[in-house]
């Protein structure tokens, strides 16, 4: 078991762990657990304030479900690209890794583009942070999610550069795997937001 652990992580000089899981991976899962509570609280707040706005624009007047369905689909596809990127890295397929990492980051950026468009559009329609409780909770919730996506895109770009420089090989797949964990998490959070904010709107 020790020998195996060492073989699997030659680049890591840590002694083998008690569970066989890599520290970084385990720690990151724990961190994501913490993040769940973070988004959970924001989402709960949004839900508590549904239908409590005193002034428009109200959600049903302004949320564009078809448009956001497209951006949601794009973010979902980026998760697929992430899976393929990890697969390519694990197989030491540098070209594939470069392609799919770029694809993931690119799709993430497109999602952010949609969000930027949506925010600008809403702003012009009169929905601002200060316009109503809906504006407040909507922009803060989706804004914090957007920040998370942005961090993910930057992270992926760095990984891409490292891969380009030949510094990420199959032995370093863990680095990509952890970025992937983060990316999928952010993606799942978006799906929850999309369902609760866009699809299940009242008032």
């Amino acid at each position: 078991m020790n020998a195996e652990a060492h073989a699997a992580h030659p680049a890591h000089s840590h002694p083998p762990t008690a569970t066989g899981l890599d520290n970084l991976k385990l720690g990151f899962w724990v961190f994501l657990g913490s993040e769940t509570l973070f988004f959970g609280t924001f989402i709960a707040t949004y839900m508590i304030y549904v239908g409590r706005s005193l002034e428009g624009p109200y959600p049903h007047e302004i949320l564009d479900i078809p448009l956001t369905t497209v951006s949601t689909f794009i973010l979902l596809m980026s998760s697929l690209a992430m899976v393929l990127a990890l697969n390519a890295v694990q197989k030491d397929n540098r070209r594939g890794a470069l392609l799919w990492l770029m694809m993931t980051a690119g799709l993430g950026s497109i999602f952010l583009g949609f969000q930027a468009y949506e925010f600008t559009h809403f702003y012009n329609e009169g929905l601002t942070l200060q316009s109503s409780i809906f504006g407040t909770t909507f922009f803060i919730l989706t804004g914090f999610h957007g920040i998370h996506v942005t961090v993910g895109v930057i992270w992926l770009m760095i990984l891409w550069l490292q891969t380009y420089a030949g510094r990420i090989r199959s032995a370093d797949a863990l680095k990509v795997e952890i970025a992937g964990l983060y990316w999928h998490f952010v993606d799942i959070v978006w799906i929850v937001i999309f369902m609760l904010v866009y699809l299940m709107q009242e008032g």
Partner: peptide
């Protein structure tokens, strides 16, 4: 930024 999470005049709830 004058958001309304706890501003009663805009429907925010301090009990939250």
């Amino acid at each position: 930024w004058d958001t309304h999470f706890f501003n009663v005049m805009a429907g925010g709830d301090p009990v939250l």
